[in-house]
Amino acid sequence: MLKIYYGEKEDAIYNTSVYFKFNYNPEWFKDPDIIHMVKDIDNSSVLGNGAIDSPVLGVIAPVTLSGGLKTLILIDKVQDRIFNASNCGDNCAGWLLRISRERDITVNLRHLMDFGPDDFEIMIMNTGDIVHNMDELIPVAGRYV
């Protein structure tokens, strides 16, 4: 299940790009799901040596990936930290839901991310409410952001 703290959360990693820069593991880029994420969000390809082939910037290091993608990778790979998922655009929402179907993940959000028109299951940690669509989510989460 996806668990979300809305609003300020002091112990969450706010600047996820900086955290990624000093903590990413090149091995992560051998994971087929990460390779898929890189293609889907940044329209880029993971090369065999862990470098990334970006259509915009050429061959780049993982630290140059988009802020949203780096945050998504951290949420997937670093399970003992809570990350500020407001560095992710709405185009990352589907991946958050997908990862959370495989295991529980907890994130901090400081804005109302659009999780799309389909049903989902999200626990709002501020209140303990479990919501199943955006119509249920907005009135609860909106109190905190």
């Binding site: 940044d42 915009v56 910037l57 050429g58 949203g68 993608l69 560095n87 655009g89 185009n91």
Partner: peptide
């Protein structure tokens, strides 16, 4: 060589948001 941005800012505070990988940080 690869990218170009062009914009006029009208007020003293402008907010830039949107999807990931749209080029904001770049």
């Amino acid at each position: 060589a690869h990218l170009q941005y062009e914009q006029t800012f009208h007020r003293n505070i402008t907010i830039l948001k949107g999807d990931s990988a749209s080029g904001k940080t770049t």
